[in-house]
């Protein structure tokens, strides 16, 4: 079913920065990994581990220092509508009404007025924002703005969706509501095909609820590649199931929150 051409191939990818004091920092160090089409992958790691750098390179917003990225059979050189991004910061255009925001990418690519309106309204309904289609973004809460951004990338029809700590600034309840919204849209797919999702987070529980596969990063290197087999949708209740408990323990160890010795004191 999954076609190898649709996969994302990352080979020996590195990115180095030169800091203001002249020192070279390696944000991502020789990464090679294949992300299968339709996979929901979470990139997890402490801040500064290289996960956002990787996402920016996949989006085409940042050039690699060496190595190559291939998405859908073509090298990634620049941003494109086949790779949608939900940014960490609010990116919804404040000078466009909600509906015009959702239509914007389609408009740029010359989709007819009627068709793009229909698509935009469909996805606004899916994220539960039908009633604010004509509102200005300033009238929306932070959680609603994220819904608009999600509706926009889905409406735009990207095969690959990248989300960079999208829900980090939201409260617990809103975050879990948005997990449901995102999983719902992803599980449905379009034309029977699921999209590839790459989701950056530092929240271990978020990764366990969402991901098919968790890639753990530390200091610019991928240190773990975990498969999560529990069927989706999952909820916060499922975090007590043995598979997720084991994964959680490993993830927290990688993040330096559990030291092997400290885990069982007195032994």
């Amino acid at each position: 079913m999954a076609n190898a051409v649709q996969d994302i191939q990352i080979r020996h990818l590195s990115r180095r920065f030169t800091r203001a004091d002249g020192q070279t920092v390696t944000a991502l160090d020789d990464l090679s990994v294949t992300i299968k089409a339709g996979e929901f992958v979470c990139l997890v790691g402490p801040s500064g581990c290289g996960k956002t750098t990787l996402l920016q390179m996949l989006a085409g917003l940042l050039r690699q220092s060496s190595g190559e990225i291939e998405a859908q059979g073509k090298p990634v050189l620049r941003p494109g509508p086949e790779r949608g991004v939900v940014f960490q910061k609010d990116s919804v255009f404040p000078w466009m009404r909600v509906i015009d925001n959702v239509e914007y990418g389609l408009k740029c690519r010359g989709v007819s007025k009627g068709e793009r309106r229909e698509r935009a309204l469909h996805y606004l309904e899916r994220v539960g924002l039908m009633q604010v289609a004509q509102a200005w973004p300033k009238e929306l809460s932070g959680g609603m703005l994220k819904r608009v951004a999600i509706a926009t990338v889905f409406a735009n029809g990207a095969e690959i969706l990248m989300l960079d700590e999208p829900f980090g600034a939201l409260d617990y309840v809103t975050r879990h509501q948005l997990h449901d919204v995102l999983l719902d849209l992803w599980l449905d797919g379009e034309g029977g095909r699921r999209r590839t999702v790459i989701f950056v987070t530092h929240d271990v529980d978020e990764a366990l609820i969402l991901a098919d596969r968790i890639l753990v990063f530390h200091s610019g290197r991928m240190v773990e590649d975990l498969a999560v087999t529990l069927p989706k949708p999952r909820s916060a209740d499922d975090l007590v199931l043995p598979e997720l408990v084991n994964h959680r323990h490993r993830l927290l160890q990688h993040m330096g929150l559990i030291r092997p010795a400290a885990a069982k004191p007195g032994q």
């Binding site: 989006a59 509508p81 740029c108 990338v153």
Partner: peptide, 18 residues
């Protein structure tokens, strides 16, 4: 202008002119 707006527009498929 926050740089995120230009990045976002580019990822949605906007040309430099757009």
């Amino acid at each position: 202008i926050a740089p995120v707006f230009e990045d976002y527009a580019a990822t949605l498929g906007a040309s430099p002119r757009a």
